[in-house]
Design a protein around this nucleic acid. Sequence first.
RNA 1: GUGGGCGUAGCUCAGUUGGUUAGAGCGCCGGAUUGUGAUUCCGGAGGUCGCGGGUUCGACCCCCGUCGUCCACCCCA
Length: 433
Amino acid sequence: MSKQNLKPPRGTRDLYPEDQRFREWLFGHFREVAARFAFEEVDAPIVERASLFMRKAGEEIVDQLYHFELHGRHLALRPEMTPSIARMVMARAGGLRMPLRWFTVTQNWRYERMTRGRKREHYQWNMDIYGEPSVTAEAELIAAVTTLVDRVGLERDHVKIRVNSRSLLEASLRAGVLRDRPEVFEPLCVVIDKIEKIGADKVTDMLVDPAGAVQLDAASARDVVAMLEVKNLEDAVAAAPADSSAGSDLLRLWSLLSAYGIEDRVVFDASVVRGLAYYTGIVFEAFDTRGALRSICGGGRYDRLTETLGGPSIPAAGFGFGDVVIAELLADMNKLPELQHPVDDVVFAFDEAQRAAAIDVATRLRGAGHRVELVLGTPKLKRVITDADRDGVDTLWLVGPDEVERGVVKQRRLATGEESELPLDSFAVEPRG
RNA sequence: GUGGGCGUAGCUCAGUUGGUUAGAGCGCCGGAUUGUGAUUCCGGAGGUCGCGGGUUCGACCCCCGUCGUCCACCCCA
């Protein structure tokens, strides 16, 4: 046997019990929030036809796909969940009661460079609404995000959500600088998505760049960048063309968010456009207010995706919420939960002669829904108690020679040290779970 | 992709200006008389110094490559 590298591949993670406990805790909150909003969970294969992801996104995404040819088929690990959901909706579009609310918690893969908060595999919570054209859908989605933020223990001012409308921007540009070239709207969004990181001057340069995809004149580029710097909803709405509903949609959204009581948790930001090509309307992203981390989640309206995939036109909105950035934020804020190995009862036979009796006790407890650790060897009692205490065990069942001879089992409550003896063959068990 | 930092015990790290048997704290295992949780004390296991080459009488240390990781830039959810 030659030596081999036993580390997990770059950008992937092993999850030890303490890691997995955290993940299950987080996923539990994802699922519970989704349930409270009456979303149903769905799933899809982690391997899809590569074309599902390449169709709209272009070559850069292709480079980030984990993809391979097998028996002449071009397959890929899913980099995001949205196309799979769209595919599933399209397949049953005629029979689904709209609007439908679906959520997923899935592992996604992207072959790309790693930085803080970005790995090659990560889990993502997606919530999607299909068949609802009004911003009541976006409002519900944003409310779900804030509910999750609260549930995991973050403070109200740790996270805020930036909101913009791509259709507002698009309407303004089509009435102006893009009047004759509507097709450059998407590349323009890709450029201005960077404004937070590279600054207004560089974005202006890129918009003007004669070798670039947009090629505006200098004055138009400055106008566009000036539009993005609007941080005030009223100013943005006032600047919107009269023939667009984008302004009134934004106002409606704000009034809905106010009804949810979360108006203070969203900020209008005209520079938020999101990087994905399929967004068409409201877009939003959650960020930590210190500005130290990447976006915590992102989403928006994507009314044309099903059409783009060759299906019927179905309005849709949704978001993806990753497990990596939220974990880093919780760590930074010192809000990581302390999670124990969940054990309710420990059953201990002092000696192998009491093994059968101990197994019987454990089996009856397990039958009543208890999580029971049966001590497998015969360590010292002191050790058993110390370990059980550290795991937060509720009850220790002591099955010794003395007890068995008298037909009893000794029950010790770890929290109080209180002990009592119960009949071995007929003790009552409180149901749990 | 470019530049830089790092990689020594399960974890966090020291260390040797190149020189016999590589260290600490925490953790883990065992013990401090007979069946009860703390503290303390004692003892123990565990490392081919990321991996592979090279230089050297001799490499954990120097050089090259490689893998992993972090940061910045780049790119992008």
